[in-house]
Nucleic acid binder design. Sequence first.
DNA 1: GACTTAATTTAGAAGTAGCTTAAATAACTG
DNA 2: CAGTTATTTAAGCTACTTCTAAATTAAGTC
Lengths: 121, 121
Amino acid sequence: MPRTQVRTRKRPVPLEAAMEAIASPRRRQILRLVWGAERSAGEIASTVRDVSWPAVSQNLRVLKDSGLITERREGTHRYYKADRRALGPLEVVLRQMWTRDLDRLRELAEDEAHSRRARRD
Amino acid sequence: MPRTQVRTRKRPVPLEAAMEAIASPRRRQILRLVWGAERSAGEIASTVRDVSWPAVSQNLRVLKDSGLITERREGTHRYYKADRRALGPLEVVLRQMWTRDLDRLRELAEDEAHSRRARRD
DNA sequence: GACTTAATTTAGAAGTAGCTTAAATAACTG
DNA sequence: CAGTTATTTAAGCTACTTCTAAATTAAGTC
């Protein structure tokens, strides 16, 4: 009995595919939504809002194919959540991007406060 | 004297731009070439070989714009080299991709050896 | 089965990335 | 300056990505 697939030792998600998947801002946005908790396709789509449902669905598929999220079906719903293990060293990258976003927001808020105070003085 | 640019504290290269830059296999290939040592555009282009010089030049520009490589001009030559600091957490990702490539090559070589031996037996 | 809700798939439009060839720039050399 | 070498810019092509609207599937409800 010929082994067609030698050495099928559950390789980690190809980093390549993962990179391509999260190179898209939209997919990063979606990934963030399913980062902490499982969410249904509908929840995700209505959260994103500046894009149609099918667009979200398509992006979910790319994420799923790249192994970055998992899908669980329950009745007519499908629930997605991030599979952090699959991200490998990319998890750090994402985290850094996101906390950096937060920093920028906080900065903006501070600047706002400053200039408001300045105007008042 | 109005400070137009508040808070210009030499921010690290936007991770976003870096991500996009290295999402391209061709650019990863080029980046690898200028990883350890500075190389001229010509050296790089003639190493890559399955693509035209202008194509290489264009990719070098993207890498440069994203801050991942630096350019040094000397006479009619331009020398490029990777700026590893700029990669931030993406350095780990690249290293992992590359060592994984090597692993795959080694595996192939081993398999070759095995089947060669098998045929002989 | 007919209807509703949840989500996906399909088909097609618009924009973009990466390439090629040809032309242009830039620095040197006689 | 005319000529050579190193490299980039410009123009145009093709293929891919991402989106939308419409059609489809799938599961549950009356």
